[in-house]
Design a protein around this nucleic acid. Sequence first.
DNA 1: CTTGTCGCCTAATTCGTATTAGTAAAGGGG
DNA 2: CCCCTTTACTAATACGAATTAGGCGACAAG
Lengths: 381, 381
Amino acid sequence: MSSGRKGASPAERAAKSDGKAAGHSGKGVRATRTGRPRQADIARLAGVSQTTVSLVLGGNKSGIALNEDTRQRVLDAARSLGYVPDPIARRLSQGQNNLLGLYTFTSTFPTDIQHSYYPFLVGVEEEAANQGYDLLLFTSSSTTDTGSAESLHRIRLADGCLFLGRHVPEETMARFLDDGYPLVYIGRHDELGARLPYIGADYVTASTEVVRRLVDQGHRRLLYLRENDEAPASVDREAGFLAGRKATGLSPAATPVIRTDGADITPDRLLGWLQDGFTAIVVEETDTDIAVSAVESAARAARLGCPEDFSMALLGNRVNRSPGLPLLSGFAVPRREMGRAAVRLLAGLIGGESDLQTHQIVACQSIIGETIGPPPETTSS
Amino acid sequence: MSSGRKGASPAERAAKSDGKAAGHSGKGVRATRTGRPRQADIARLAGVSQTTVSLVLGGNKSGIALNEDTRQRVLDAARSLGYVPDPIARRLSQGQNNLLGLYTFTSTFPTDIQHSYYPFLVGVEEEAANQGYDLLLFTSSSTTDTGSAESLHRIRLADGCLFLGRHVPEETMARFLDDGYPLVYIGRHDELGARLPYIGADYVTASTEVVRRLVDQGHRRLLYLRENDEAPASVDREAGFLAGRKATGLSPAATPVIRTDGADITPDRLLGWLQDGFTAIVVEETDTDIAVSAVESAARAARLGCPEDFSMALLGNRVNRSPGLPLLSGFAVPRREMGRAAVRLLAGLIGGESDLQTHQIVACQSIIGETIGPPPETTSS
DNA sequence: CTTGTCGCCTAATTCGTATTAGTAAAGGGG
DNA sequence: CCCCTTTACTAATACGAATTAGGCGACAAG
């Protein structure tokens, strides 16, 4: 091959001094696997080397001197061939490709829990566009077992990756961190010490605030319904509830925590609670909002009006608010802003910025809503 | 220059004839840009060539003989180094990377028209996962002007691309087609002759069917509200409506087509229509469903009950059905199935299959709903 | 007439993997 | 002992762009 090369060099040179030596077949020559023109094709057409083409098209960041004529010839050739750079090759050589991964341990677009990730995605897309990144959605997650090696390898295609979901496959994540691969979790996660960068929501403060609001309204006996799961989102809300109990001086007996999956919330049970003197129910928000819905339908069945007969607060906000349903009192999880912040952080990590806040907690905003009122009149004042 | 080359070759050869020269430091050597181990590192550790590593890890599809011992040594070395293949390099060499692009000419996750693309995405994600593809979402679309060269170049990163949206930048698409780049539109598009592969919905038949149902119920004067836009989705529905008019023998005067953006539908106007003897209103479905909503609120304001005072049919289905609202009679656009079909077709195109149906029309299913009833009693029988 | 220094461009190499062509050694048949 | 096959590997190269390290000619200064 080098023998052929030697012969070719002078030929090219000759072609060049001919000037605009496009006399050949030019276009017909390209027989690459893809059929698309490469820089080498442009080079041949313009009578220069591939290096020159790269310099011209790459904006010549190294500051190498370039004749304006040559530059134009190359640009013309590129245009006439309809050249489009191959992002893959570029990435192999440069080490980055402007892709942000998005890994959701379950389906990204679930059919049942419709839209649970949607607000995050809105923010992620917005900010990714701002920062000039495209998004890479890993679908393998749904089919393959969680965190399988196969499926996680592909993540490296992206310059960095966002993770969305309750789970943290610690081993794999540790591996990524060790390798210096940039990643950001959406949602607080302290599984790997302080190593996992994340954007969380301040559930604790917001939940405390909700308790305080109920107590301010006169409620003294509150019931807290939570999931039977130890995800940070659950833990934090309970912590906030307990902090609220403490701050308002209520006793544990007056503010019990009940774990439920929603199925066991019957109209009778709800009535029982009210008869026991509970005047407000605080419900954890989840993907499915199954617990709130259960309370709502139990109330309907028991013919209980929500602000009148008892108050209800949601620790979070229904993602999918339907026009028919009342606006629940509680707080808004700033999902969109979290998505944006996550992308900003990730972009910073990729860019190697040093003074990054890798553990961010975003404040939630109170939702006044329609479901908190004063407790109903009872025997005791 | 070739002199230097010649000198190097023997040097390499010497290094090689030393044989299994892994005696060195092995692990400590890797000082790659990324810090991740490469096949070459494994090779050094296992005392074999990079080729052998590639063969072992690649499953040796070429059927080259391999000693089981060697195989194990390589696998062990790979594991101990924590090797992860670089998808980019793989793609550069293989020519494909298991990525499907998804290009929406507007934001993929809009905030205002919430969820309009969602059902498609569900299907796309499902089938992409089945076929072993990940999804590449191009965000540039929202920021850059439609179809700008810059933003469309990036599409080639994917092995093929789905397009979602009413627009077709013909020039760019023609370019893709000429290059043999695999792409599929979701939605019928005949802009480029029959060159653009697509998955459409059979709006025509479904719309005709809706008209027939109304006529079967006794309606003789129908009003059709459509968008002022010539997108195929609109054109097809109108065609179906007109076909229904023809099939049922109704006159154009009894079945007028009215273009509206929703804003001009007042309670008075609605009442006027009913006084003019129209007993049913057929509405085109759109992203925002602005027209249906307008009719609904006009009816509410005019205190008209829907199946009682007039019938209403939607040519399509509300994507975002809220619990409070009645189920509109009409038909279901099989968005999820369209998404799946699009991915299947695209995968076929990428795989170079020959006998592909590149223009597919998927049938819609009737929705009986609650908004069609017999026409109210009037003076004339 | 040398030496230096621009100006302009190219050869060679790199990124990490896959593939093709080929080589060296061992074993078998004549 | 030679030739042929089989086994088990390796060298070289491709993929497409970016980058590094020059090379060559011209013109200026000494």
